[in-house]
Simulated assay, not measured.
Amino acid sequence: MTLVMGILNVTPDSFSDGGQFLGLDEAIAHARALAAAGADIVDVGGESTRPGATRVTPEIEQERVLDLIRAVAAPSAPRVSIDTMNASTALAAVAAGARIVNDVSGGLADPDMLRAVATTDADIVVQHWRGHSADMYARARYDDIVGEVIGELGVRAQAAMDAGIARERIILDPGFGFGKEPADNWRLARELARLTVQGHRVLVGTSRKRMIAEVAGSREKDKDLATAVTSVLAAQAGAWAVRVHDVASTRLALRTWRTWAGSGEGS
C-alpha cells in the first residue's frame, strides 16, 4: 500500500505554498485538513528548498516548526515528518513528536545529521542531492541519470548505516527537481522501478514541480491532477509513499487504481 505524505511548509518562500501557513493556528488547521483528506504522514518544513532559496538559521527554522509539531503529533493522528537539513532541528523535532526526518541533502548538508538521527528511533529519508538550492542546477549534468542517482543514493544509505541507523529505518528519495532538469526527471521517473527494487523503501515527490508544470501548465488544479497521475505511476513502480500538496486528489487516484487492479478500496 502506497502511503500519502501531505506537505505543510511554514515558510514565507516555499515555491508553491510559501506564506500560506505562517500562523500557528493556520498551520494546525492545515495539518488537520491534510489528515481529514487522508494523509498518512504530515511533512512539516521550516526552510524553503526551492531553487534559489536563501538558507535560514536552525533557530529560525525551529521557531517555525516545533510548536506546530507538538500540537499535531499524537498517536491517533498521522505521523509527523520533519523536513530539515539541520541535525539540531531534527533532534528537537523528534523530541517534539516527529517520527521521520526528511533530509533533502541525504545527510550531506550537516555532517552531524546521520549520527544525530542514529541516537533516536526515527526513520530517515535520504534524498539524492548535489548541492544547495542557490546553485543546484550547476550540478545537473548526468551521463546516466538513473544509474548515477541509484549509485549516489547507495553511498548515502551506506553512510547512514555506518553512522548506526538500521537499514529498515532508511527511506530513499530520488530527489525529483533537485539538481535535475525536467528531461532528467522524466527519464528517472520512467525507470523508477530500478530504485524500488534496491531493498529500501522509496519516497517520491513530484508535486507541482517544474516537471509537472511543463506538462500541466500553471493552474494549481491542473498541476495537482498531473501530480495524482504521477503518484499512481510511482505506486505502480513500487514507491512506499508519495509526497504531495493536494492529498485528496492523490488519495482518490490511488484508490481508483487499486480498485481497477482488483486489489481493494484502500490506497
Results as ranks from 00 to 15, higher is better:
D135A: 15
M136F: 12
M136T: 08
A138M: 14
A140K: 10
R141P: 06
Y142M: 05
D144C: 02
D144N: 11
V146H: 10
G147K: 00
G147P: 08
E148C: 02
L153P: 01
G154T: 02
R156E: 03
Q158K: 14
Q158V: 12
Q158L: 14
A159T: 04
A160C: 08
M161I: 13
D162Y: 09
A163D: 05
R167M: 10
E168D: 15
R169F: 01
I170A: 06
I171G: 01
L172R: 00
D173Q: 04
P174R: 07
P174M: 06
P174T: 09
G175D: 03
G175Y: 04
G177M: 06
K180E: 07
K180H: 12
E181F: 15
P182C: 06
D184I: 03
N185W: 00
N185E: 13
W186L: 15
W186C: 12
L188H: 12
A189I: 11
R190N: 14
R190P: 11
L192E: 09
R194C: 00
T196H: 03
Q198P: 05
H200V: 03
V202C: 04
V202L: 10
G205I: 09
T206A: 15
R208N: 05
R208P: 04
R208V: 11
K209F: 10
K209C: 01
R210A: 13
M211C: 12
M211E: 12
